[in-house]
Design a protein around this nucleic acid. Structure first.
Length: 437
RNA sequence: GUGGCCGUAGUGUAGAGGUAAACACGCUAGGUUGUGGCCCUGGAGGCGAGGGUUCAAUUCCCUCCGGCCACCCCA
């Protein structure tokens, strides 16, 4: 019986790594550009953190968390998302004592017990950002801008922003009442799933996938109409800033979607999602929102916050779908080919070259032809050939594997060889032939 | 969690109730004496797992596992 990886997990093989590094470096670069600093929190937390943060009732807690009891009898949960942990860290480490808002980002695996599909796995990875300690609409716009820059940095096109405002808890009660009444009046037109949803989470009926519900939802009361006062100013300021963003990036577009909601109580005001224009089922690339009540719920002093999370697997899927080319990794500068019985001289030479910062691989002990082929298949820039003859004469043969590569002899001495290899490289770069290496 | 489609070497595909399961790419070894890519010739490697029907199953049936799709949910 062979071992298999657990359901919904993936091996990220060397051939996939270029995509991952591309995404990671874009994320770090964009975060840095906006002044967000990295934070890492544990992969698991007390179960109660997520129960509080997410709400006991939901399916999330009921069936989607990886929870278990550890040897000490504590209930532990593999983190299903990043926000709760970051907020816990903010409270626990007294981050409110520094300049506010605290701007942080994370790149981390998340765990959810789900039925897998493409872009939906049990262990997935997220890039997320949080800005905690500032309730102004400018920060909302900043987060949305950051998300935009991130997607753009990946080269992904044809993405649009959907957004909505959920108002504040006070106004929301009225809204949910009216919404509830509206759908209850039309309950006979709702499919069974949505009638159940109506009882559990009226807001969720809005983003139902059933066509008959969608028609109803379009005419349902809109949360925007229930926001007033500061919340309304906040919303209008945000829209103004987004218009400005649009004037800077012509590709940027947004659409107010009255049916965009969140199932969790702690979200308020701004909610948003980026998705491809031709989005199918698992389409959302990045989703975020404001969660001003959360830190209070978690036991901290009331502190506003906003952030987003974005699944890296989905981004890579989308990049592949859009046929974006990501450069693969380069081969080594040198493969050392050893001929005949040269003892350990070849291995010593490889060490010496690495000591001189030349990336070097020692070819496996095979025929010369096989070693050459090996070097070629690795995409090596040069081979350094070392045999009895070379040792006798105190030289090595260096051959460039470029199309029109030549061969020359250099003193058998790591430093001289390293120098020669570097010269070769600069010459190639000068020619522009190795610009993509 | 519900319903559906699917599961043949590393990858992509072909195949038939019955002796050696095919092809391409990839991997590997050679094509004489120390030179890669192209070409030629070899080699390794497989019917997801378990059970059942049958004289005989990779092929039919069941269960499980896994993938994909839709739903539930989606922090």
């Amino acid at each position: 019986m062979n071992f298999k990886r657990p359901r919904g997990t993936a091996d990220i093989l060397p051939e996939d790594q270029p995509h991952w590094s591309h995404v990671y470096s874009a994320a770090r670069k964009v975060a840095q550009q906006f002044g967000y600093q990295r934070i890492d929190t544990p992969a698991f937390e007390d179960t109660s953190l997520f129960q509080r943060g997410v709400g006991d009732e939901t399916d999330i807690v009921q069936k989607e968390m990886y929870s278990f009891e550890d040897h000490g009898g504590d209930s532990i949960t593999l983190r299903p998302e990043g926000t709760a942990s970051v907020c816990r860290a903010y409270i626990e480490n007294g981050l409110h004592n520094g300049p506010q808002p605290v701007r942080v980002f994370y790149l981390a695996p998340m765990f959810r017990y789900e039925r897998p599909q493409a872009g939906r796995v049990r262990q997935h990875h997220q890039f997320g950002v949080e800005a905690i300690g500032d309730e102004s609409a400018e920060v909302d716009a900043e987060i949305i801008e950051l998300g935009w820059k991130y997607i753009a940095a990946l080269g992904i096109k044809n993405v649009t922003l959907r957004l909505n405002t959920l108002g504040d808890p006070e106004g929301r009660a009225d809204y949910i009442n009216d919404l509830d009444r509206y759908f209850t009046e039309h309950a006979d037109q709702l499919p069974v799933v949505d009638r159940n949803r109506l009882e559990r989470a009226p807001l969720r009926v809005l983003d139902s996938k059933a066509p008959e519900t969608q028609a109803l939802a379009d005419a349902a009361p809109k949360s925007v109409d229930y926001v007033g006062g500061e919340s309304k100013d906040h919303w209008e300021t945000l829209l103004g800033l987004l218009d400005n963003l649009k004037s800077i990036y012509p590709e940027f577009s947004y659409r107010i979607d009255h049916r965009l909601v969140r199932g969790l109580d702690y979200y308020n005001r701004t909610v948003f999602e980026y998705e491809p224009l031709d989005a199918g089922g698992q389409g959302t690339l990045l989703a975020g929102g404001r969660y001003d009540p959360l830190i209070g719920i978690l036991g901290g002093v009331d502190t506003p916050g906003i952030g987003f999370g974005s699944g890296i697997e989905r981004m890579i899927l989308e990049m592949k779908k859009q046929e974006l080319v990501v450069k693969g990794s380069n081969g080594p500068d040198v493969v050392v080919v050893a001929l005949g019985d040269v003892g350990t001289a070849a291995a010593r030479l490889a060490m010496g070259l690495r000591a001189s910062d030349i990336s070097t691989i020692l070819a496996p002990k095979r025929s010369m032809k096989a070693q050459m082929r090996y070097a070629n298949n690795l995409g090596a820039a040069n081979v350094v050939i070392l045999g009895d003859r070379e040792i006798e004469q105190g030289v090595v043969s260096i051959k460039s594997l470029a199309e029109d590569g030549g061969q020359s002899e250099v003193t058998l001495d790591a430093v001289s060889i390293a120098e020669h290899v570097r010269l070769n490289q600069t010459r190639c770069v000068g020619n522009g032939t190795a610009g993509d290496r």
